Computed example of a mutant assay.
Amino acid sequence: MLVISAKSGQLGNRLLLSANFMAFASENNFTVINPAFEEYADFFSSTYQDFLCCYPSRPFSIAGNKWLRKYYYNINRYLAESGRFNTINIKRDYPFSWSNSTSITQELKSQSINFFQGWMFRDGWFIDDISNLQKHGEKIRAYFQPLKKYQLNVEKLISNIRSQADVIIGVHIRHGDYQQHQNGRFFYLVEDYLKVMESAQMLFSNKKVTFLICSNQRQNDDFFQHLSYIYGNNHIIEDMYSLAECDYIIGPPSSYSMWASFYGERPLYMIRDVNKMLEIEDFVHFYQWQGVFHYNEDWSKSFWEWTH
C-alpha cells in the first residue's frame, strides 16, 4: 500500500502527483491511499464518497466530510513521522521519477504500508514517467471525473461557445500567487498574454476564434474588446475542466493548465517568450513534453526549462 501522507502544492500538483502514483500502482499491483487530497476530494466522483481516496476504487466505501478528511490526514501525518512504519522521504534537490529512482523503489515493502512525504512530480518533474501516464491515462481520467453538477456547467459553457466559434483557445492567466512564485519568473502582464493571444489568432485567419479566459484574478474587460472572448465560470474545477474542453490551451508553466492538457488530451502552449510569433507546432500534447531541469541550492529557485 502506498500512502500519500504529505501535501504538495495546490490542485494541479496534487492531481499530477496522484496520477503518477496511480500509474505506478497499476504497473506494480499496489493500492494507493491519498489522505493528502482532502481539500479537493469533494469535487470528484470517485473521491466524493470515499474519505480514504483509495485507488483502485473499492466496491464499498465510507463517505467523507471536511472534518473527517482533515482528521484522517492528520493521523496519517502522525503515523508517517512516528517511525513505526516504512516512511519514504522524497528530497527536493532533484526531480523524482519512478523510472530513475531505483533506491526509492527498493525501499518499498510490498506487504506493508509505505508512507510518502516530500515534494514530488511538480510541473515537469514527472517527465520521465510520462509513458506510464499515457498507458494508464484512461483509468486515471475516469477516476478524476468531476461531480455531475460541475460537468454540466462545463458542458453548458463550452456548448455556448462552440455555437458561435470554429476554434476555442483556452487561456490560463495566472496572476495572484504567481507575482511572488519564483520571484515572478512566470508572472506575465495582461499585455503579454494579449501578444500571445493575438499571435495564436493569426494561426486561424480563416476561422472564427473565441478565447476562453480563466484566471485566478479578476481581469479588466477593456483589454480584450478587440477579441472574441468569454470568461470561465470562476470556479477552480469548472475552469480547469473547461480548459480541457478547448481545442488549444495557452498558459504559463503551471500544473493547472498541464492537467487540463492531460485530462482533455488537448495541445498546450506553455508561454516562455511573450514576443514569439506562434506556430501551430508550438502547441504540444502532454505526452510530447520535453525539458531541462535547472538545479539551484535554493530549491525555490530550481526550475524546468521547457524545450518542447
Rank of each mutant, 00 (worst) to 15 (best):
H226P: 05
D239G: 01
D221A: 13
Q225A: 11
F223D: 10
S215H: 08
L227W: 08
I236G: 00
H235T: 01
H226G: 01
H226W: 06
N216V: 09
Q219S: 02
I230Y: 08
N220S: 14
Q217K: 15
N220A: 12
S215N: 06
S228P: 04
R218W: 06
D239A: 01
F223Y: 15
F224W: 13
N234I: 03
N216C: 11
S215D: 06
Y229A: 01
N234M: 06
Q225R: 13
I213M: 11
G232E: 08
L227K: 10
N234T: 03
Y229S: 01
H226A: 07
D222G: 11
N234Q: 07
S242F: 04
D222Q: 12
D221M: 12
H235L: 02
Q225Y: 13
D222M: 09
G232P: 06
Y229C: 01
N233G: 09
D221N: 13
Y229D: 04
N233D: 12
D222I: 08
Q219F: 04
G232V: 04
E238N: 14
N234K: 05
Q225C: 08
N233H: 10
Q217I: 15
Q217D: 15
Y241Q: 03
Q219G: 00
E238L: 03
C214Q: 09
M240C: 07
F224P: 00
Y229P: 00
M240Y: 03
I230E: 13
N234V: 03
Q225V: 15
D221L: 12
D239Y: 10
H226N: 14
Y231T: 01
F224T: 01
M240G: 00
C214L: 10
I236L: 08
Y231Q: 02
S228Q: 12
E238Q: 12
I230Q: 13
Y241F: 14
D221E: 14
R218Y: 09
N233V: 06
C214H: 07
N233A: 11
F224V: 02
D239R: 03
I236P: 04
M240T: 01
D239T: 02
Q217A: 15
Y231H: 09
I237V: 10
Y231L: 04
Y229R: 06
N220F: 14
I213Q: 03
Q217S: 14
F224R: 09
N220G: 01
